[in-house]
């Protein structure tokens, strides 16, 4: 016993600022465990977003850069191009990655930049107080959609994993969640796969994680889990959308 509760070496020994019931902490832990298991802490550079995880650099014990809002994939590109031997990951929210930084993530994915993007989709802007995100559900109330998201005016939520998997460039694109232990295990496997593809210099990887924001959803942590299951997961289905192996199989058949 005890071992499972030990902090991964890749995480610092400080308390996070995340709200109770927020899944950012779980995702941090999984990333930390994967870095430990692959033994790559000494050559890993993380990139923090602008969003609730802006202080992520305080929680990881590897080198870190802090980006401007949405620009982490361009910074990761810069690092990987000049230092391909470093392991680079971005950690981004849905406002950061799917709104202001949509251009950067699409082009990084399409160039096949060999870094790993960890995309935390909580259907809302957490840090700035619960405004509408590109992933906000139809009818979902936020501070900038007080009557519920009106899709006539703002369109439908963007499914990032599906969108990126439509690119012709090879990549590993998956969507997972961390609302239950069985999902947590799968998310960790996906993260490990993503980092491994990067280590092999194989392809771009993105792990979307459907997450909770009890604070800005105005729910208890338990209700937030329930709402995720009932509302988010049917619209944001889980699983691998693209793997480099599949691409190989397709080209072998062609």
């Amino acid at each position: 016993m005890g071992k499972t509760f030990q902090k991964p070496e890749a995480l610092t020994d400080v308390h996070t600022h995340y709200c109770p019931g927020c899944t950012h902490g779980v995702i941090h832990r999984l990333v930390g465990e994967v870095i430990d298991e692959l033994g790559i802490r000494g050559r890993t550079v993380g990139i923090a977003p602008v969003g609730c995880a802006v202080l992520a650099y305080n929680y990881f014990s590897c080198d870190f850069q802090e980006a401007a809002h949405g620009r982490a994939p361009a910074m990761a590109t810069g690092i990987k191009r000049v230092r391909p031997d470093l392991m680079v990951f971005t950690y981004q929210g849905d406002g950061d990655l799917a709104s202001i930084g949509m251009g950067e993530i699409i082009h990084a994915a399409n160039r096949g930049e060999k870094f790993t993007a960890i995309f935390v989709n909580n259907a809302v802007y957490g840090m700035t107080g619960g405004q509408m995100a590109p992933t906000t559900m139809p009818g979902q109330r936020t501070t900038t959609s007080p009557l519920g998201r009106n899709t006539e005016e703002t369109g439908m939520p963007i499914r990032v994993a599906e969108l990126l998997s439509s690119l012709a460039t090879e990549g590993y694109i998956t969507r997972q969640t961390v609302i239950k232990p069985k999902f947590i295990n799968r998310t960790k496997k996906a993260l490990k796969k993503a980092f491994t593809y990067q280590m092999e210099g194989r392809c771009f990887s993105l792990v979307e994680v459907v997450s909770t924001c009890p604070t800005n959803w105005g729910m208890t942590p338990l209700d937030a889990i329930k709402w995720t299951e009932e509302t988010l997961l049917p619209y944001f289905p889980l699983g691998d959308f693209k793997t480099p192996e599949e691409a190989e199989a397709v080209s072998a058949n062609a």
Binding site: I47, Q65, A67, A68, R71, A74, M75, A76, T77, G78, I79, R81, V82, G103, E104, H107
Partner: peptide, 10 residues
């Protein structure tokens, strides 16, 4: 915009 941040990263 992206180029500026590629410089920042590098």
């Amino acid at each position: 915009v992206a180029v500026g941040y590629m410089l920042f990263g590098a």
